[in-house]
Design a binder for these strands. Structure first.
Lengths: 219, 219
DNA sequence: TATTTATTAAAGTATTCGCTTGAGTGATCT
DNA sequence: AGATCACTCAAGCGAATACTTTAATAAATA
């Protein structure tokens, strides 16, 4: 019954790939990257049933992508390693580069306009220090409350039209959300540009910002 | 019928992940990385039936990881993008870091000994220029004949004992094979070290060497 | 034009996956 | 201790996958 070591290794690598090969698990990873959470919160955020979320989470744990620990009644999941984020990001890069379908979806998010290059995190940090930029955190209010980039203002897509009236026309805005998989920032930037603002996306989202050791406001 | 753009994007990312989530397809990618090849050659190298290999290859093509073109009677497959190699390598890194099982298998390959750190490609290039190192290409003869690092000597695992007798004891040897998924170099290094040679693996294999624009002997 | 060769398509089967439902487990609260 | 809460396990079902066998297609050759 002993199979070759080569086959055994490939089986393990494939196990990791299989873990990131279901949309539900990618959503869970995106949520866990925001900060460690219990099963119920993750299920609620991703729209999965509790039992289903639990099973997916165990799949992720078997692949070594997340760790879990017990905290009272809850079981808290968190990313086991920063490389997990890197793997997800590279997956996205490969998909965007090779699949025309992805190009099309992203173009649709920008409402036909050409999207500008994202702002690098280094750039944003510099401008933050100068105070020369407005930052919009385009995530749901509870995620913003949990953690956000200091100085960011929580603005959901629904708020955008109302908020825009209070902004100085032409001002420079940087929007971010959960990370590279999150589309809110794309949509917010497209809407703001349509209104004539100089809006751009931040490259990556909160997890990538935190991962680089930058300051995060945390509750 | 129109699903949300978010779900559509995740489905595309998952498609790419699914493509690298089967051992058979990882083997195919490893082979294709050696150089472009037809279906029959790939099937033979990986031990898959022709029809099965063809289906896996189409799976890889749908995910945008490989391209194909017709050359006479044959259909030639090749990597569509260097990022594919990077993705496979990161997959391996994540698996090695997080899965105890992988650690165990790799330890088994080294026959219980502690394996030394691999030699970087920069280092090897420097030593090659100095002529201060012996390079073993531990792949099957046909793959060596197809392409190899200039100055390398083709030595299969079966030859190793015989060849060892002709080497100066204590000499420094660097072994490489197909790439990070290939175990021949691990095994060769373990065997050579047991015989008292100062042997180490090259980091990566021929595809990574070529990818960096370094010289490759090619037929 | 007919035949051979290389590959893909189609059809069938066994296995695995994703999701649901309902029962089971561990920790906390009363 | 009993009730409750948060999660996991087990069973079951439909859909998707991996592999095999058997056509079908496309290009080269006779």
């Amino acid at each position: 019954m002993s199979i070759s070591p080569k086959a055994a290794l490939l089986e393990e690598y494939a196990l990791v790939a299989r873990a990131i090969s279901a949309p539900a698990r990618l959503m869970l990873l995106e949520q866990i990257a925001q900060g460690e959470r219990g099963v119920e919160a993750l299920a609620e955020k991703t729209g999965l049933s509790i039992a289903n979320a639990s099973q997916h989470l165990q799949h992720l744990r078997r692949a070594g992508l997340v760790d879990s620990r017990r905290d009272g009644k809850s079981v808290i999941y968190r990313l086991s390693d920063a490389k997990t984020l890197a793997l997800m990001d590279l997956l996205r890069v490969v998909a965007e580069r090779n699949l025309a379908q992805v190009e099309r979806i992203l173009r649709g998010l920008s409402d036909g306009q050409d999207a500008p290059e994202p702002v690098s995190r280094d750039d944003l940090a510099d401008r933050l220090a100068e105070g020369s930029v407005t930052i919009f955190d385009v995530r749901p209010a509870d995620e913003f409350a949990f953690a956000h980039i200091p100085g960011a203002r929580n603005v959901t897509l629904a708020d955008l039209d109302r908020i825009a009236l209070t902004l100085i026309p032409g001002s420079e805005i940087v929007a971010y959300c959960r990370g590279p998989y999150c589309i809110y920032a794309h949509q917010a930037v497209a809407a703001l540009r349509k209104m004539g603002f100089n809006a751009r996306r931040l490259d990556g989202g909160l997890p990538e910002w935190r991962e680089e050791g930058r300051q995060v406001f945390h509750n």
